[in-house]
Design a protein around this nucleic acid. Sequence first.
DNA 1: ACCTGAACACCGTTCAAGT
DNA 2: ACCTGAACACCGTTCAAGT
Lengths: 237, 237
Amino acid sequence: MTQPATATTRRTPLSRDRVLRAAVDVADAHGVDGVTMRSVGESLGVEGMALYRHVAGKDELLDGLVSTVLEEVTAAATDLPTSVDHGEDWRPVARALMLRAREVLLQHPWAPALIATRGTTGGVTLPWYEQLCGILFSAGFSDDLVHHALHALGSRALGFSTELFAADSPAEEDPATAVERVRELTATMPNIGRVVASMTHDATGTLGGCDDQAEFEFGLDVVLDGLEARRASGAGA
Amino acid sequence: MTQPATATTRRTPLSRDRVLRAAVDVADAHGVDGVTMRSVGESLGVEGMALYRHVAGKDELLDGLVSTVLEEVTAAATDLPTSVDHGEDWRPVARALMLRAREVLLQHPWAPALIATRGTTGGVTLPWYEQLCGILFSAGFSDDLVHHALHALGSRALGFSTELFAADSPAEEDPATAVERVRELTATMPNIGRVVASMTHDATGTLGGCDDQAEFEFGLDVVLDGLEARRASGAGA
DNA sequence: ACCTGAACACCGTTCAAGT
DNA sequence: ACCTGAACACCGTTCAAGT
């Protein structure tokens, strides 16, 4: 049962980087609550106490988790443009940068919430912001408007939240109970009832079927269009 | 030292509601990590194990924390309009609703991150969404556009994140080191350096002085204007 | 009916001891 | 130099026992 790791694996010395990568794997598999000094150690074939050689403690390990994921975000953007040509629409380029960030974060569903608990992201996101700045400046943004855009887009890309709106619609729901639920809702909350009713009329016919990706892109386009309007009109704020 | 609570206080029977309110107070005072079955019990003059009579466990207590704060958000909105007059600009009304929500959440700095860890907000936010729906429908929004707006504004109001952008500027920083830091930044990251430089030129002269409130309002106005443009042009998406 | 005390499993952390 | 084992404080949770 106690399968000893191969000699090679056993001998590979621990390092801060290996610890953090192992912790990310544990979080991906068991959520952030599953990340324990002992569990991360076990996934490395080592006692949990051995980790203290390479990270100061649990808190720094969690910070490291955030940094590791955000480095992944930054790395995933390196094959995207860092500027636009004169007269070129900057929005598709910034859009791609934003969607790429989202792709990475969706692979680590625990990450946005953990990022939110940390006060800051440290410096690891700077290259990503530098890239975004490059795109915006080359498109003719003013200093102030770039600053505002960094806040508006940065919080959207790195701190996006999913499904706050959902009112616990059970994954598998009987159509009859769904209709009944809409009826109840409509009785006391006519406006929400109207929205939900319009959703049930769509192709799928299912309730609570919000397309997170589509909603993210809608909100993103609203922001991109709004920033472009302000750039074109020369408004600093 | 062991000050016994007054007889009256002692006799007031525990209830789910009192437990949750006590837990919110503990979180406000010591952060969400300070919320412990034992610490919440102590703040009520009771052993931690007594809480299990009123909440199923720690997880339900945290869910209750989120619900309590979100009920506060909903309650804080009741003196705001639920619709607009024909031809009235809906944006200032929706804006007030959003800013009111933010005000409440800023009093519980731990709340957004905790909300993010919970999959859903349960049904407690429905009245708030109902109110927002009422405003949007009365302003002539289509069903689809209201749906999109609920996502765009809801995630912004309830899941907003602060200061993801900041690169750990120490609270108290010597101006000389600040200038040096900008120089280093500018060397490898000219675009970010330009933004930071433009910030240091403002009235305060301090570095890293991002005005979260102003940035929130800027991003909010971008979204509100974008939604209005889509409403006016009759675009469903 | 409601709370307490003791107990157990698990976690973060320290540190002397191993190799 | 790097890891292990034992130990300690603290936490979530259960449950028999108190009042």
